[in-house]
Design a protein around this nucleic acid. Structure first.
Length: 858
RNA sequence: GCCCGCGUGGUGGAAUGGUAGACACAGGAGACUUAAAAUCUCCAGGCCGAAAGGCCGUGCCGGUUCGAAUCCGGCCGCGGGUACCA
């Protein structure tokens, strides 16, 4: 009998599937369709365990759906634009295009041996001109519909490298390459009007029943609908053109506790004042040196600058409040100005203490007779809860008992009735800035003309392709800045409108644009328009989308917006505006990070394969171990699955990444498990091969084994359908153990062996295919119909009931499954352990949960 | 900082209000073997005990419940996101 040799069988069966065209998605009305999609990879050059986990999960679903009679669409492509390609070009020469396509070839070659049931005929990369040309067409349609516009926005500017930096490229306020202090710079950029859809994107979350609640919650918080009051403070002796400061607050109920007004350093008033005030100009300049990320702004020390100006409180004209410029106020949110109420907001309280501003409370603990509470020295601010408890609030509503929410509503009503502002609904969601000052992205298809202004490129001129050479010489990425900006010929073009000499837009699109519609393109990847409506009508929506939780907000929100925009521009049917019916967010594959320091004390990261016993293999130098984190190329904490596949085969790798950890949870990679997985598959191979080769008398049965078989079919099917892959695999272990120990020489054994092989086939398709053949199965296992459990056999006749005394398990009884409650009670009370514990007394209470438990309360 | 998760034996985890630790890994004992590998059998949360059995136990503190790993409140730790990483 032959031993299990993955290397021999895996290629053989991959070829057999290929030849049968089993995974080629066919649009046909005879069967229901099923579209399963895993988030496509960035072609970094090597696949890692996260990819293997992600694509194996999708493959299990795809193969299972195929076996249950669906037309399955399971495509694969490449999210191929992005910074790493340009970084590689800058670091070691070459061209981002060559680097990227080389990586794609490498990764495809690493992926194919996994035996994934992918329709490779639909493959594309987002850097293919055929793809991004269609994206440019989408952009033009969106421009025509008013879904794209231009406005100014700030970026991180590296004054030495003369380039825009991503947030990731800013380390402690300095450019990662130059080490120069980063500045903020304002540029005119393109924006998608996603905020126009804020309300709809929020409301539609309710309909996404098969999305994880946590993702919907994160998106809802991100969109951030708030109800508040917008009103103005009148400014005393303000500069020309500034007689009021418009503010937005979600807590108008605390207006009578106002202590100061704060404005953003980018507020028009701040910009006006700094012209005549050198100190303020210096303060604002310092604020503008901070990074642009929300995290950095929020974590920075709260600082303010007293402008010397005063405003009047809207309800008491003699009450004057100082106006501060404060570094924590964002121009992007609300009106770029706030009023501070230190008693009821921690950040305002910290600010007030720092600048010696009054603290006035407007909330009493329980009754109007009690003093309004003030935070004690060093104590925390009292933030009135919106929905819970009731408090007395001073101000607008006659000191009535209310919740915070009622107080807010009352305050808004009062203010509106007294001509102080109006209640408004605002969203946190900002428009999506898509301009990137980089080469390796999809060119924005517009032209700047001195006479016509910004002119859309003509569709017949698409795709606007990225130039590969600069007049015959390769583009030089060692020079700082965007190569498109200094390109001698590409930039110069004719105005599509008047034909005069004009300049092409040199900004490219955010790579999130590329990934916001690829799922739609997969339905008709060679179409001469962005989509083919007949194909989209058939294949959309994605029935099951699988990817990392790190995409819970941006990618998924952008895709939801894009689907709506594509519907509005006639590229997707109405039913596809929510493109992902079901979402599964898999956990990440994590790994420890190994770090040493260079001469400037900057961190240097090392690959796990270069480290042994906390020391560098090469030099023996000790490494610092940083706890497990998401595998990322920049931290070098990545593990190479290729070696696992080489040593044990794809089925072992697939089995391994699905076992043990629940799919939604992070899994820390350890080398130990692969060996064990391989041992088990070898055992299955051996046991099933023996059974196949044995003589079996036709009439010798084993009902217990058949019962186990039906239970296994039931449990494994349930596991696969509910993403309980680890539980399904544990069940398969148990079933394999039962089979191995079962009575030799029965027909039931052959039947059970076949069921085992079939149940394993979504996870270990090659091994299963091989054993299917050994067992004399008809056709390909991959094409065989999924087994059905015999429901009648699954029902247990007797059940074991634990008996608890005061909630602690003390005994158990075996009873018929539908035994009457009172009968169970009698049996339980008669049990030795119970009579002993009762010691002649009567129990206080007996709880009988049929089929589950008996609890005797003494 | 803010939003969202997660925390169970030596390890990965199972149990989603009802017998905590399924199924595996690592470990221990044994069988087979000249030997090793492979394979097979058995043991295994901690403490006390010869055993029967008892007590403790799901990050920490408190609550709800006949009953809590599971629900609620408060902490601690770790991770993801934070709008130009993908």
């Amino acid at each position: 009998m032959s031993r299990y040799s993955a290397a021999e069988i895996e290629e053989k069966w991959q070829q057999a599937w290929d030849k049968a065209g089993l995974f080629r998605a066919k649009r046909a009305e005879d069967k229901p369709k099923y579209y399963v999609l895993e988030m496509f990879p960035y072609p970094s050059g090597r696949i890692h365990m996260g990819h293997v986990r992600n694509y194996t999960m999708g493959d299990v679903i795809a193969r299972y759906k195929l076996a249950t009679g669906h037309n399955v669409l399971h495509p694969m492509g490449w999210d191929a634009f992005g910074m790493p390609a340009e970084n590689a070009a800058m670091a070691s020469g070459g061209h981002p295009k060559d680097w990227t396509y080389g990586n794609i070839d490498d990764m495809r070659a690493q992926m194919k041996p996994l035996g994934l049931s992918i329709d490779w005929s639909r493959e594309f990369a987002t850097c293919d001109p055929e793809y991004y040309g269609q994206q440019q067409a989408l952009f033009l349609d969106m421009l025509e519909q008013g879904l794209v516009y231009r406005k100014n926005a700030v970026v991180n500017w590296d004054p030495v490298d003369m380039t825009v930096l991503a947030n990731e490229q800013v380390e402690n306020g300095r450019g990662w390459r130059s080490g120069a202090l980063v500045e903020r710079r304002e540029l005119t950029q393109w924006f998608f009007r996603i905020s126009d859809f804020a309300e709809e994107l929020l409301e539609a979350l309710d309909g996404l029943d098969d999305w994880p609640a946590k993702v919907k919650l994160m998106q809802a918080n991100w969109i951030g609908r708030s109800r508040g009051l917008q009103f103005a403070f009148s400014l005393i002796d303000g500069p020309e053109g500034h007689d009021r400061i418009e503010v937005y607050t979600t807590r108008p109920d605390t207006l009578m506790g106002a202590s100061f007004v704060g404005i953003s350093p980018d507020h028009p008033l701040a910009r006006q004042l700094e012209k005549d005030n050198a100190d303020l100009a210096a303060f604002n300049a310092e604020c503008r040196r901070m990074g642009t990320s929300e995290e950095e702004l929020e974590k920075a020390e709260k600082k303010g600058f007293d402008t010397g100006l005063r405003v009047r409180h809207p309800f008491d004209t003699s009450w004057e409040l100082p106006v501060y410029v404060a570094n924590f106020i964002l121009m992007d949110y609300g009106t770029g100005a706030i009023f501070g109420c230190p008693a009821h907001d921690q950040r305002d309280l910290d600010f007030a203490r720092k600048y010696d501003l009054p603290v006035t409370s407007t909330y009493a603990p329980q009754t109007p007779d009690e003093a309004f509470t003030l935070p004690e020295d060093g104590g925390a601010a009292f933030v009135p809860p919106k929905t819970e408890k009731v408090h007395y609030v001073k101000g607008f509503a006659g000191d009535e008992v209310q919740s915070g929410e009622q107080a807010i509503d009352a305050a808004i009503a009062f203010c509106e009735n007294n001509g102080v502002g109006q209640g408004v609904t605002k969203f946190r969601l900002r428009d999506w800035g898509l301009s990137r000052q980089r080469y390796w992205g999809c060119p924005i298809p517009v032209v700047h003309c001195d006479t016509c202004g910004v002119v859309p490129e003509k569709k017949e001129n698409l795709p606007i392709e990225l130039p590969y050479d600069e007049d015959g010489t390769p583009i030089d990425f060692s020079v700082p800045g965007n190569p498109l900006d200094r390109h001698p010929t590409w930039r110069d073009c004719a105005c599509p409108s008047c034909g005069a000499a004009a300049r092409r837009e040199t900004d490219t699109m955010d790579t999130f644009v590329d990934s916001s519609w690829y799922f739609a393109r997969f339905t008709a990847p060679r179409s001469a328009t962005p989509t083919d409506m007949a194909e989209a009508e058939y294949w959309m929506n994605v029935d099951q989308y699988i990817g990392g939780i790190e995409h819970a907000i941006l990618h998924l929100l952008y895709s939801r917006f894009f689907a709506r925009a594509m519907h509005a521009t006639g590229h997707l049917p109405q039913k596809a505006i929510e493109p992902f019916n079901a979402l599964f967010t898999q956990g990440m594959v994590t790994h420890e990070i190994y770090q040493t320091r260079d001469e400037n004390d900057r961190p240097v990261y090392h690959l796990p394969e270069d480290v042994e016993d906390a020391k560098l293999k090469a030099t023996g130098a000790p490494v610092e171990i940083i706890p497990s984190a998401k595998m990322s190329k920049s931290k070098k904490n990545v593990v190479d699955p290729v070696s696992i596949i080489g040593a044990y085969g794809a089925d072992t790798a697939r089995w391994f990444v699905l076992s043990d950890s629940p799919p939604e949870r992070d899994v820390e990679w350890t080398a130990a498990g692969a060996e064990a997985a391989h041992k088990h598959l070898s055992r299955v191979h051996r046991v099933v091969s023996e059974i196949a080769a044995s003589d079996t008398p036709a009439n010798d049965q084993d009902d217990a084994l058949l019962r186990e078989m039906h239970k296994a079919i039931h449990d494994v099917t349930g596991g696969v359908e509910s993403f309980g892959f680890n539980a399904a695999i544990a069940r398969l272990y148990a079933f394999a153990n039962t089979l191995a120990k079962s009575k030799a020489g029965t027909q039931a054994r052959k039947q059970a062996a076949r069921a085992l092989v079939q149940l394993m086939s979504p996870m270990t398709p090659h091994l299963s295919e091989d054993l299917w053949q050994t067992l004399g199965g008809e056709g390909l296992a991959a094409a065989a119909a999924w087994p059905q459990p015999d429901e009648a056999i699954l029902v247990d006749e007797t059940v074991t009931l634990p008996i608890q005394i005061n909630g602690k398990r003390r005994a158990e009884i075996s009873v018929p499954k539908d035994m009457d409650k009172s009968e169970v009670e009698k049996l339980a009370l008669a049990h030795d352990a119970v009579t002993k514990a009762l010691d002649g007394a009567q129990p206080k209470k007996i709880i009988v949960v049929p089929g589950r438990i008996v609890n005797v309360v003494i």
